[in-house]
Simulated assay, not measured.
Amino acid sequence: MKVSEIEMISPQTVEECLYHLGEKDKTSRFIAGGTDAVVRMKDGAWLPDTWINIKQLDSLRYIKEEENGIHIGPLTTHTDIVHSGLLQKKADVLTAASKEVGAVQLQNMGTIGGNIATASPAGDTIPTLFVLDAQIELTSLMEKRIVPINEFFVGPGRTVQAQEEMITNIIIRPQTENEIGIFEKLGPRKAQSISIVNVAISLKMGEKSRECLGGKIAFGSVAPTIVRSEKCERMLTINPLHDEAIQDIAGAAWKEVMPISDVRASAKYRRSMASALLERGLYRLMKRWDER
Rank of each mutant, 00 (worst) to 15 (best):
P224V: 13
M286Q: 04
A200I: 12
E67C: 10
G251H: 02
I167M: 14
I246L: 03
L141K: 14
V147Y: 11
R189K: 08
G123A: 15
A103I: 03
R210I: 14
K185C: 14
G181E: 07
I136F: 06
S261L: 01
G281I: 15
V154L: 05
E244W: 00
F152I: 15
H20D: 02
T125K: 10
P174T: 08
K268S: 02
I180H: 05
P127K: 13
I6R: 08
I249W: 04
K26H: 11
D290F: 05
A274W: 04
Q12D: 07
A97Y: 11
I180M: 13
A253D: 01
R61D: 09
I167N: 09
Q192T: 01
A117N: 10
T50E: 07
K55S: 06
K268A: 09
H20G: 03
N115T: 07
G281K: 08
L138F: 06
M41V: 02
E230M: 12
Q105R: 04
T159P: 13
G73A: 00
L106F: 01
A267I: 04
S4M: 07
A250V: 08
S272H: 08
M41K: 14
E279F: 05
Q247E: 01
A276P: 03
M142P: 10
L60G: 08
V14I: 15
M109D: 00
F183Q: 11
I6C: 02
K89A: 04
E291C: 11
R280E: 14
E16S: 11
N169K: 07
A134G: 13
D92W: 07
D43S: 15
Q135P: 10
Q12P: 05
N53R: 08
I260Q: 10
D124W: 04
S140Q: 15
E179Y: 12
I112Y: 04
A117R: 10
D133F: 06
K24V: 10
Y283G: 01
I70Y: 06
G85D: 06
D25A: 05
G33E: 13
G73L: 07
S98L: 12
A276R: 13
Q56F: 11
A32S: 03
